[in-house]
C-alpha cells in the first residue's frame, strides 16, 4: 500500500460512518483514535456520509484522506488506495462517492487535492453500538499504518 503524507501541508481526514450500526462506525473510530494524540498538521472531521458541500470543504486542502468501513471480502484487514475524480450515476441522495466529491471539487473549485482512502474491513452492521473484535483489530492495524506513515514523514523532514 502506497501512501505518502506531505508533512509540510495540512492533511484533512474525513471519517465516514454510523456508530449506531456496529462496524459501520469504523471511520469515526479511526478519527477518535487519532484525537487521543493528534498528529500536527492534521485536521479531522466525521459524518454519516459524503455530501455535495464536502467538495467545498476539501477544496481548502492539498491532501485529503477518507476513512470508511468496507464490506468487501477483497479487503482482508484494511487497504489504502488513491482516489481519482470520477463522476458516476450510481450516487443517491443518501450516498455520494468520494470520487464524485473529488470530481465536483475539481469542476466547481478547480482544485484536485491529492486524495487517498483507507478502507477498513467490517463484518457486522446491525443496530448496535460498538465494533466487533475483528473490526477493532483491523482498526488498530489501520491506525498503526497511518501513524507510521506520519512518523516517517516527520523523520524525513528532520
Amino acid at each position: 500500500m502506497t501512501y505518502v503524507f506531505d508533512s509540510k501541508q495540512p492533511l484533512f481526514i474525513y471519517g465516514i460512518g454510523n456508530v449506531g450500526r456496529q462496524d459501520d462506525g469504523l471511520g469515526w473510530a479511526f478519527i477518535e483514535a487519532l484525537e487521543d494524540n493528534p498528529p500536527s498538521n492534521v485536521e479531522t472531521f466525521r459524518n454519516y456520509q459524503l455530501n455535495i458541500e464536502d467538495a467545498e470543504i476539501i477544496s481548502h486542502y492539498s491532501q485529503v484522506l477518507f476513512v470508511d468501513a468496507s464490506k468487501s471480502e477483497s479487503v482482508e484487514t484494511f487497504r489504502c488506495r488513491a482516489v481519482e475524480p470520477y463522476a458516476s450515476l450510481s450516487f443517491t441522495s443518501h450516498y455520494l462517492s468520494m470520487e464524485s466529491v473529488l470530481a465536483l471539487c475539481q469542476n466547481v473549485y478547480n482544485k484536485t487535492p491529492v486524495t487517498h482512502v483507507i478502507e477498513i474491513r467490517g463484518y457486522a452492521w446491525e443496530l448496535q453500538q460498538g465494533l466487533t473484535n475483528q473490526a477493532q483489530q483491523n482498526l488498530d492495524m489501520a491506525v498503526g499504518f497511518f501513524k507510521n506513515r506520519i512518523k516517517s514523514a516527520y523523520a524525513d523532514l528532520s
Binding site: A87, S88, L89, S100, A103, L104, V108
Partner: peptide
C-alpha cells in the same frame, strides 16, 4: 448517463 449527475451539472 455519463453526464446526467451533479458533476454533469457542475460542467
Amino acid at each position: 448517463i455519463a453526464t446526467r449527475n451533479i458533476v454533469g451539472i457542475a460542467q
